[in-house]
Design a protein around this nucleic acid. Structure first.
Length: 262
DNA sequence: ATGGTGGTTGTACCA
């Protein structure tokens, strides 16, 4: 079984790329982020034609998450217990959707962007991650053998080797100690980065800014992860970061991350 | 080669 996670930066703009990716990679389940589409705008039929069921949660032109599966899609959950809201009045954003796919609970997560050190969005991001760690801890407490994949764009580079320049990010988000502590909180709850052992850094990234030739200059960040519960991590036999998908015209600024399960 | 922001929306906001 093969699970992918990919921030596509608009499913409507990227549907041709997503289609081609699914067709050439034998993906069973894909967690998608930044769909930027409401339910009535989502290209469900394009997935159906390839044999995938889709569930999606999108409220407006921002955020948006989806899961496509060709191995079953059950027990869909939008958001998780304790997930913080944003705005006035406080409202849940479209940043989390989960479903059971062939025995694996797959989550598609779009962790808030903190924008800048000191920005209220950063506090929101940290709250969101703390709530996720707490929810995840609860899921494993209820069932220690649960197979759970927390897939998505985490907007955090957990270690210095996960960014092209420590100096560049010294006073920006994604690398600050509170963010790294919050990410580690999810790891400590029992969810492991199963890709790192197959692709050790430095220089291994999943995101490259659109501006200033970041990709050809290899100026990226590793911020997209599939964190797996112990029972699922034990099934992992390989992993791939598909840099090919960042190349050429019409690419997302993120590459897909794929894990292979026995 | 991988190439100098892009997407959605509406003339700004988000990343």
């Amino acid at each position: 079984m093969r699970i992918a996670t990919w921030n596509v930066n608009s499913i409507r703009s990227r549907i041709d790329r997503v289609e081609a990716f699914l067709a050439r990679t034998e993906i069973d389940v894909i967690a998608i982020q930044e769909t930027k589409a409401r339910e009535d705008q989502f290209p469900f039929e394009r997935f159906a034609a390839l044999g995938y069921e889709v569930v999606q949660h999108g409220l407006n032109q921002w955020n948006g998450v989806a899961i496509a599966s060709r191995v079953g899609l059950e027990d869909v959950q939008v958001g998780f217990d304790g997930m913080p809201g944003w705005g006035e009045p406080l409202a849940a954003e479209a940043r989390a959707i989960g479903a059971l796919c062939n025995g694996v609970r797959v989550w598609s997560l779009y962790i808030p962007n903190g924008r800048a050190l000191g920005d209220p969005h950063l506090a929101y991001k940290l709250d969101w991650l703390r709530a996720l760690a707490q929810a995840g801890s609860g899921w494993l407490a209820a069932n220690p053998t649960a197979q759970i994949a927390l897939c998505g764009d985490w907007n955090i580079a957990p270690f210095d080797e996960d960014v092209w320049s420590v100096e560049y990010y010294a006073h920006r988000t994604h690398t600050s100690p509170p963010e790294r502590t919050a990410f580690q909180g999810v790891v400590d709850a029992g969810f492991a980065d199963v890709v790192r052992p197959y692709h050790p850094g430095p220089g291994v990234y999943t995101y490259w800014d659109y501006t200033q030739l970041a990709f050809p200059k290899r100026r990226g960040m590793r911020i997209d992860f599939a964190l797996c519960s112990p029972a699922l991590a034990a099934r992992v036999t390989g992993a791939l970061i598909d840099r090919e998908e960042r190349k050429g015209k019409g690419a997302s600024d993120h590459a897909p991350v794929v894990i292979e399960l026995a």
